[in-house]
Amino acid sequence: MSDTTPSSSQGGDPRPEAEVPTPPRGVRAPGPVEPWHGPVPPVHGPVGGAGPAGPQPPGQPAGLGQPDPYGRPAADGVTPRAPAPPAPPPPQPHEVWQRPPAAPTPPRRVRWSTVLQVVALVLGLVGTAWVSTDYLRTQWPLAWPRDPVPVSADGTATLAGVTVSLVEARDLGDSPSLPGTDWQPPAGFHAWRVVLATSSTNEDLVSCDVALVDDRDRYFYANTFVDSFVEGYEWSFTCGAADPGSDVPPEQALLVLVPADAEIRSVRIWNTFLNPDVIELPV
C-alpha cells in the first residue's frame, strides 16, 4: 500500500469520516475495496492516533511534537508546527489507487442525553397509551356479559348467589294457545316458553335479563314484543333474594318471541352489575 493517506484522516479531525479522499486525477479507482492488511494503528494514545512518524518515543509526553488543537504555545513559547504530510508520489500511468485505511475511531462514549431522550420517549408513549386506553381498561371489560360461569353436572349454574337451572325451553310454534290472551306472534315468528328454576341469596339484585341465543349469536330477549300479561308467565325474571311475602314461584316461566328460522342454542341470564360474568345454560 502506498502512503497516500492524507494527514487530515489520521489525526486531529474529529470527523474522520467526513472527508474521504478521492483518487488523484489520472488514477483509476479500484473495483471492490480490498481489506486492509497493513499495520493497525494503535487505538489508544494521543488524540488522532499515531502520526506518520509512528508511536511516540518512550519518555516523551503525549502530544509533544504535535500542534496544539487550540493554537496554544508550547512550553518553550514556540508554537510547534505540524509535520508536513508526506507528499503523495506522482501518479504512475498504470498505478491503481487504493483506498487508504480507515482512521482509528475514538472510544465510544455513552451519550447520556441520547439515553435520556429515549427514556423520555418511552415514558411519553407509555403514559399516552395509558391515558388513552382508560376506557378499554376500566369500562370495556364491564360493558357486556361475556364470561359464562361453569355449569355443574346437574345443569345448575351459580353466579353471585344466584343459582339457576333450565327446566324447560320449548318452541310453542307460530300459533300458541296462551291462557288469558289472544296475542299471537307476527307471521314468521314463533313463541318460546322458557322455565327457569331459581334460588337466590343476593339481596342487591331484583331482576335479571334473559335471552335465547341462536347459532348466529342473536339475542332474543324474554318478555319483549310479547304480551306481558299472559297467565302463568312472569313479566320479568326475578333473580334477587325473594322477600318473605313474595309470590315469585320457584320456577318462573317466560315468553320469548323468536324468528321461525332461528336455531336456539342457549339461554343467557345476566345483570349489568354482574358483568362480565353471565350464566349460560345450553338448550
Binding site: 314484543f225 318471541l257 324468528p259
Partner: peptide, 9 residues
C-alpha cells in the same frame, strides 16, 4: 323505539 334482531318495528 325498541327493535330486536331481525325483528322489524
Amino acid at each position: 323505539w325498541l327493535a330486536g334482531p331481525d325483528t322489524w318495528v
